[in-house]
């Protein structure tokens, strides 16, 4: 099928973003990125994707606003409670045997998963010996993650999820209510490094016992998924654990054989012996 003008424009805008700012969305799954770009175009009242490209190329202040559209992620604390239950009951008993731990939340967005994980580790008595890396490509998301503040109306769902995950405490122990917002306890992030890191262009930076990267790789094309999974493989210690989203799988990956299924129904994998 011949390329439509709009598809050409989208390809050019992604190329422009890469060359000008080194944000590389060129190998994101195209149908979703197109939806997001068209949303941005209409939000910014641009007559075309080309007009949007012109604006972002010449106005650096436009970049974070566009990134907000391209990387938007809506998550919940303890999303998929059974995933956290499996970590608690099946993965943490192995992690307990290490004197110190490194855990990577890759694509942490506004921090919901990070705080969930920190609470889980505190409940299990592992928080003090764990260093968390929370990474994302969107600086605004990292700021939000570092702040750890969520609208109070989301807390009902978070609390329900936490209980279903086998939570041993009350979620309200970890935040204070402040004018309609829940402000999470900063002691949860004493040992958290927030960092700008791209699964597309950046490299291994530490050796982890656990990596959680959920609903991030579904936005990548197959080649990029392979790159990300390869990065995880190289970042994990022997027998390290990798958790991906409930509808994600390593099955189609070039690196599938480097992992065994540890809790298949929760998409928790374990690195095999080299």
């Amino acid at each position: 099928m011949p390329h439509r003008t709009e598809d050409i424009e989208i390809g050019l805008l992604l190329e422009a973003l890469y060359q000008r700012y080194h944000y590389d969305f060129r190998h994101y799954a195209r149908a979703s990125i197109k939806r997001r770009l068209l949303q941005a175009r209409s939000h910014f009242n641009m007559s075309s994707v080309t007009a949007l490209q012109e604006r972002v190329l010449h106005d650096p202040e436009m970049l974070p606003r566009l990134l907000g559209f391209l990387t938007v992620q809506v998550s919940e604390m303890f999303r998929d409670p059974s995933y956290f239950r499996a970590l608690r009951e099946q993965v943490l008993p192995h992690l307990r045997t290490y004197p110190s731990l490194k855990v990577w939340i890759a694509g942490c967005s506004a921090g919901e998963e990070l705080y969930s994980m920190a609470i889980l580790f505190r409940e299990e008595g592992l928080l003090d010996r764990t260093l968390f890396y929370a990474t994302d490509i969107n600086p605004e998301a990292l700021k939000a993650a570092e702040a750890g503040i969520y609208p109070m109306d989301r807390l009902r769902k978070f609390t329900e999820n936490h209980q279903k995950s086998g939570g041993k405490s009350s979620l309200s122990d970890y935040y204070t209510a402040d004018y309609g917002r829940a402000v999470f306890d900063k002691s949860l992030r004493n040992n958290v490094v927030f960092s700008d890191h791209s699964l597309v262009t950046d490299a291994v930076f530490a050796e982890m016992q656990l990596i959680s990267c959920r609903n991030v790789m579904i936005y990548f094309d197959r080649g990029l998924q392979d790159r990300a999974v390869g990065l995880f493989k190289d970042s994990l210690t022997r027998h390290g654990f990798l958790g991906v989203g409930s509808k994600e799988s390593l099955r189609f990956s070039r690196h599938a054989s480097a992992f065994s299924e540890f809790v298949p129904e929760e998409k928790i994998y374990r690195k095999r012996e080299p």
């Binding site: 799954a29 195209r30 149908a31 939806r35 938007v72 809506v74 579904i218 936005y219």
Partner: peptide, 14 residues
């Protein structure tokens, strides 16, 4: 979603 190359794609967008 369906991609132009005939691959299915999932998304957890809002």
């Amino acid at each position: 979603l369906i991609e132009e190359n005939g691959d299915l794609a999932l998304s957890s967008d809002e």
